[in-house]
C-alpha cells in the first residue's frame, strides 16, 4: 500500500506551502536567538551562571518583581549548600503568625518559606509603578512567545525612540516589546551594576544572559531531570522498537 503514503506526503507538503505563505506576514521583530546551556537533548543548567543570575534578580529585578512560585529551599538547586540557603533566607524578614497572643509577628525567613515579593498586593505594586503592574517572574521564561530569547531581547532592547515616535508619559522605547512602549524603566543600564563574586565582568549582556538563565530555571526547575530521564526512556524505547520489529518480522514470516 504505497499510494496512501505518497498521498500523505503530498498533503503535508501542500500544508507546509500554506504555512510558508503565513510566515511572510510577521509583524513584530522576532527576538534574536541566544546560546543557552539548557538547550538541546543534553542541555543542563549552568550552576555558576544561575547563581550570578539570582544575584542580578535579587539586587535589581526583585525591587519590583516577585518570583512567587519559588521557595528558598529551591535555591539549593542553584548549587548553594543547605547552610548557604539558610543564610540567604535569614536576610529577609517575613510575617508569621498568629502567635498564641493572636498577633502576627516578624521573623527571619526559613528555607521552607516562599520567597516574598516586594509588594503586599497588586494595588500597592501599581501605586508604586505609575499604575503598571510588574509581572511575576517565576514563569516569565515560559509565559512569552520566544521564551528566554524574548526576555533577553526585552532586557537588552531599550533604545532611543526613532524620530516621529512620541512616547506616552512614564513609558520607554523597547525594540522587542509589542507596540514598542513599555512601562518598565531600563533595568540593566551600565556595566558593573552588580558585583559578581566569581569575578565575571558584569556587562549588560552578561547580566541579562545570567538573569535569564536563572529565570529559565525558575520557570522549569525540572529540566535537568527531564532531559536525563528522557534520554533513558528514548534509548529504552528505541531498543524495544527494534526488538518488537524483529519479533514482528519473524512471526509474520509464517503468513507471507
Amino acid at each position: 500500500m504505497r499510494q496512501p503514503v505518497l498521498g500523505l506526503l503530498f498533503a503535508v507538503l501542500l500544508g507546509c506551502a500554506f504555512c510558508g505563505i503565513a510566515n511572510a506576514q510577521e509583524e513584530a521583530p522576532a527576538p534574536p536567538h541566544q546560546q543557552w546551556s539548557f538547550e538541546g537533548v543534553f542541555g543542563t543548567y549552568d550552576r555558576a551562571e544561575m547563581q550570578r543570575g539570582f544575584q542580578v534578580y535579587k539586587e535589581v529585578c526583585s525591587a519590583c518583581h516577585p518570583v512567587k512560585h519559588l521557595y528558598y529551599r529551591d535555591l539549593e538547586e542553584l548549587g548553594y549548600t543547605e547552610d548557604q540557603v539558610k543564610g540567604i533566607a535569614a536576610q529577609t524578614q517575613v510575617t508569621d503568625g498568629p502567635n498564641d497572643q493572636g498577633e502576627m509577628f516578624q521573623r527571619p525567613a526559613r528555607p521552607s518559606d516562599r520567597i516574598p515579593g516586594p509588594f503586599p498586593n497588586d494595588q500597592a505594586a501599581r501605586a508604586a509603578n505609575n499604575g503598571a503592574l510588574p509581572p511575576d517572574l517565576s514563569l516569565i521564561a515560559k509565559a512569552r512567545e520566544g521564551g528566554p530569547d524574548y526576555v533577553y531581547a526585552i532586557l537588552t532592547g531599550y533604545k532611543d525612540p526613532p524620530a516621529g515616535v512620541k512616547l506616552n508619559p512614564n513609558m520607554y522605547y523597547n525594540e522587542y516589546f509589542a507596540g514598542h512602549q513599555i512601562a518598565m524603566p531600563p533595568p540593566l543600564t551600565q556595566a558593573d551594576q552588580v558585583k559578581y563574586a566569581d569575578g565575571t565582568s558584569a556587562t549588560v549582556p552578561q547580566m541579562a544572559h545570567d538573569v535569564v538563565s536563572f529565570l529559565s530555571w525558575a520557570a522549569e526547575p525540572n529540566l535537568d531531570e527531564r532531559h536525563r530521564i528522557g534520554f533513558k526512556v528514548i534509548l529504552f524505547l528505541i531498543i524495544a522498537t527494534g526488538v518488537f520489529y524483529a519479533a514482528k518480522r519473524k512471526i509474520w514470516a509464517r503468513v507471507h
Binding site: 528522557g230 526512556v233 528514548i234 524505547l237 522498537t241 518488537f244 519479533a247 514482528k248
Partner: peptide, 17 residues
C-alpha cells in the same frame, strides 16, 4: 506492540524534549 513503541517514542520526544 511495534506500533505502540513507535507512538511512545514520538510521545516521549515531546514530553521530555
Amino acid at each position: 506492540s511495534f506500533g505502540l513503541c513507535v507512538a511512545l517514542l514520538v510521545l516521549a520526544f515531546f514530553v521530555f524534549y
